[in-house]
C-alpha cells in the first residue's frame, strides 16, 4: 500500500533520511520507532510529500506521488489521512466544521457532507459534541476529532505522527483501541510513528526501528521475535541477562509450544524468564527456558528447525 524506496533528505548538513526503503502492506498497521532526531517525522512527512525528498520515490495505493504534478498531488493527498501530535485542529471551527474541512476540499455537497460528518462523529464517539469548539475539548477528544477528520474523505491510508504522545496513558489506550478497530473494520492501512514501545505492542502488526536516518530493522513482529539479535525484539520484550544452560525462544502463533515440547521429546521444561504480552490482540513474546532430560538436545534441535530458537547459552 505504501512503498518508499531510496529516500534521501538533507537539511543543510543534517542528513535526516539516508536511503530509506519501506513497504507497508494493505491493511497492515506498521509502527516506526526511533530516538529523537532519527528522522521518523521526516519520513512520515515524505510519504504525503509535505516534505519533498531529495532522492527516492514514494508510492501510495499504486500511485507514484513523487511523479505527480501539483494538482494531481493535491488530489492524491485527499486519499491519505493524517493525524498529528498536537491535533492541528482549526480553532475557529466547531468539531463538525473541522471534520467537514476535507470534504469541502473534495467538493462534496452540503447535504452529503453533513451526513458524512455525522457518520464520522458517531464512529469516534463524539456525536454529542458536534457543535463544540476544539478549545472546549479534552486532549483525547481532540485527537478523536483529528481521527474523524483524517478519515472523513475515506482514505486508504492513515499516517500518524506521535498521535498519542500528548495524551495520558488511559486516553492513549482508548485512542489506540480506536485505531485498531478502524484498521479491522475499514481495512485501513496505518503507518504510525512513535517512541513508545507500548504503542507498538498495542496496535502494530509490523515495526521498524530507525536510527540516524536509516531503517536498521523491519518486519512483522512475530518474525522479529524469532530473529536472533533483533534490537526491536529485545526492546519490545526485554529479558534479564541469560544464564548458562538456558535457551530463549520466540512465542508466536504456536500457543501450545511448551506442552508439545514435553510431549514429543522426553524433557522437562522450566521457565527461567519471560516477557509475554498481547501484541495486536494475540499473545507474543519471548521465553527463556531451561530444558532438561534425555531429549533435551533433540528438543533444542526441533526448536531451531522451526525457527523459534533465538538464543542458546550452553
Amino acid at each position: 500500500m505504501i512503498t518508499v524506496s531510496g529516500l534521501r533528505k538533507a537539511y543543510g548538513d543534517v542528513v535526516a533520511l539516508d536511503g530509506v526503503d519501506l513497504h507497508v502492506g494493505k491493511g497492515e498497521v506498521f509502527g516506526v520507532l526511533g530516538r529523537s532526531g532519527a528522522g521518523k517525522s521526516t519520513l512520515l512527512r515524505c510519504v504525503n510529500l509535505l516534505e519533498r525528498p531529495d532522492e527516492g520515490t514514494v508510492t501510495v495505493d499504486g500511485r507514484e506521488l513523487t511523479a505527480l504534478g501539483a494538482a494531481d498531488l493535491r488530489r492524491a493527498r485527499q486519499r491519505i489521512g493524517m493525524i498529528h501530535q498536537h491535533f492541528a485542529l482549526l480553532s475557529s471551527r466547531t468539531v463538525a466544521g473541522n471534520v467537514a474541512f476535507p470534504l469541502e476540499v473534495m467538493g462534496v455537497g452540503r447535504a452529503a457532507r453533513a451526513r458524512r460528518v455525522a457518520e464520522m462523529l458517531d464512529l469516534v464517539g463524539l456525536a454529542d459534541r458536534a457543535g463544540a469548539y476544539p478549545a472546549q475539548l479534552s486532549g483525547g477528544q481532540k485527537q478523536r476529532v483529528g481521527i474523524a477528520r483524517a478519515l472523513a474523505a475515506e482514505p486508504s491510508v492513515l499516517l500518524s505522527d506521535e498521535a498519542t504522545s500528548a495524551l495520558d496513558p488511559a486516553t492513549t489506550q482508548s485512542i489506540l483501541a480506536l485505531l485498531r478497530r478502524l484498521n479491522r473494520e475499514l481495512g485501513l492501512t496505518i503507518l504510525l510513528i512513535t517512541h513508545e514501545m507500548d504503542v507498538i505492542k498495542a496496535v502494530c502488526d509490523s515495526a521498524a526501528i530507525m536510527s540516524d536516518g536509516r531503517i536498521v530493522e523491519a518486519g512483522p513482529i512475530p518474525d522479529l521475535l524469532a530473529t536472533p539479535g533483533s534490537r526491536l525484539a529485545a526492546e519490545l520484550f526485554p529479558l534479564p541477562p541469560a544464564e548458562p544452560g538456558t535457551v530463549t525462544v520466540a512465542l508466536g502463533a504456536d500457543r501450545a509450544l511448551l506442552s508439545r515440547l514435553t510431549r514429543t521429546h522426553d524433557v522437562d521444561v522450566a521457565i527461567a524468564a519471560g516477557a509475554v504480552e498481547h501484541v495486536a490482540g494475540a499473545p507474543a513474546g519471548r521465553l527463556r527456558l531451561r530444558i532438561t532430560g534425555p531429549g533435551a538436545a533433540d528438543a533444542v534441535a526441533d526448536l531451531r528447525k522451526r525457527g523459534l530458537l533465538v538464543e542458546e547459552d550452553a
Binding site: L50, R75, R77, R149
Partner: peptide, 9 residues
C-alpha cells in the same frame, strides 16, 4: 500543514 496534507490549495 494539516490543510496541505488534506489536499487544500
Amino acid at each position: 500543514q494539516a490543510a496541505e496534507a488534506m489536499g487544500a490549495g
